[in-house]
């Protein structure tokens, strides 16, 4: 976007010092670090999607491929990876829901639903859905 609406100032002291952002800017404030971690969660979520696709492929190949894949999944490395992915996925979800009120302003007549209530509602629905899915998967 062109934001220049007037010619740069030139008359008396036109010198300007342009500060450079340090490459480590994300390390300089805890809030920046939390933001970068939130963005990094996408890498772990994508990794899990790849694992899921590999699982489907092994299932499609059937028999030996499937049992080989199950053995791979049960290795300590894979279990550790899954735990890390779970941690990041939970962090991703919590930050997502906690940011919901920034985009969503719910007005019922003259009453504005408080931000906290929106977050709690989202988290409760998320937990209920998770429990329902867990119940279906684990009781089969």
């Amino acid at each position: 976007m062109d934001t220049q609406t007037q010619a740069p100032y030139k008359r008396f002291r036109p010198e300007r010092y342009k500060p450079q952002m340090a490459l480590s800017w994300w390390w300089q404030k805890p809030t920046y670090l939390l933001y970068i971690l939130r963005e990094l969660t996408s890498v772990f979520v994508a990794t899990y999607a790849v694992i899921l696709l590999l699982t489907l492929r092994a299932l499609g190949a059937g028999g030996e491929a499937w049992s080989d894949w199950l053995t791979t999944l049960q290795s300590p490395g894979m279990i550790a990876l899954h735990l890390v992915i779970l941690l990041f996925a939970v962090y991703h979800s919590l930050t997502w829901f906690s940011l919901a009120p920034t985009a969503l302003v719910l007005r019922i007549k003259d009453y504005t639903v408080p931000a906290k209530a929106l977050v709690v509602a989202h988290v409760v629905i998320w937990l209920l859905c998770s429990i329902a899915i867990a119940a279906i998967v684990l009781t089969r």
Binding site: T3, T5, P8, Y9, K18
Partner: peptide
Amino acid sequence: LDHFRVIRDLVIDTDDFMGKLKR
């Protein structure tokens, strides 16, 4: 203030912001 061009000491150049605001 960070991210602004500096004119002198603690005085920043706000022209860029003014242009953006107008747009």
